[in-house]
Amino acid sequence: MLSLIQQVISGIATGGIYASLALALVLVYRAMDVANFAQGEMATFSTFISYSLIEYAHIDFWLAFVITILISFGLGVVIERALIRPFEGAPVLTLLIVTLGLFTAFNGVTGLIWGYVFKSYRGGFPDQPIQFGGLYLNTQDLGVLGVVLVMLLLLYLFFTRTKAGLAMRAASLYPDSSRLLGVRVGWMLALGWGLASAVGAVSGMLVAPIIFLDPNMMQAILLFAFTAAVLGGIESVLGAVVGGVAVGILMALVGTYIPGGQDLRLAFGLIVIVVVLLVRPAGLFGRATVKRV
């Protein structure tokens, strides 16, 4: 029983990481109805930047963390302006393929710069157990949860309290009306990409201490983030968070209690995606869109 509780808690922590990347996906999806397949690879790229800052520039982890978030934000904005904007109004299929192009390109560039050798990445939290009642909790897991909660709070405040956050919501929901109110909708999309890229970078920097740092490290995470986003409803911010935690717990249990479950976790992700889409396509928190053929 204790071991089950411990698995659930560590699942929640990993789920927080999935939730962050899922959140990044949702931000882009809300802005332009496209799942950004490159989100994970962009996060990997960002994580490598923080790695370089820590290892070569000898900057403290948390300072590197902040600098990386800022760089990632800029990167997201630039990518949207330079590579996504030219395809404005193109069919979804085209945009999807563009993000897949970004996926391969980012993967290649990361490998080009940092190589394919696995690197260990020391995060901001010590990896040591603390005893709590009969439970052994990991400071790392608790730290991850803390960072994710702070990030969620900041995003919530941004979207409800600031002018730019409100304008981003308005622009993604009602681009035409927003334009008439003086909102530069194109820049709001770029801002969305920037935010998504920054949020994704956080997920990368949180997961890298748990797994090893390598150019392909986010691919499985991306699949779980997709699973989380689909489960929660791909347009719902709350759904991404709840979905992420649920997927985190599920994968922790699959990995522990099913023989050889580590290998099968990705397949479970696939199964969850397919089942959710068949049973409740809008996800847990999504609005059902009426689109019958």
């Binding site: 308005a170 009306s177 003086g182």
Partner: peptide, 18 residues
């Protein structure tokens, strides 16, 4: 051009966007 999913106050805030 109602921003339907936003609240009345948020609609007004968007009006003052510029």
């Amino acid at each position: 051009g109602t921003l339907g999913q936003l609240t009345v106050w948020e609609n007004l805030r968007m009006g003052a966007y510029v």
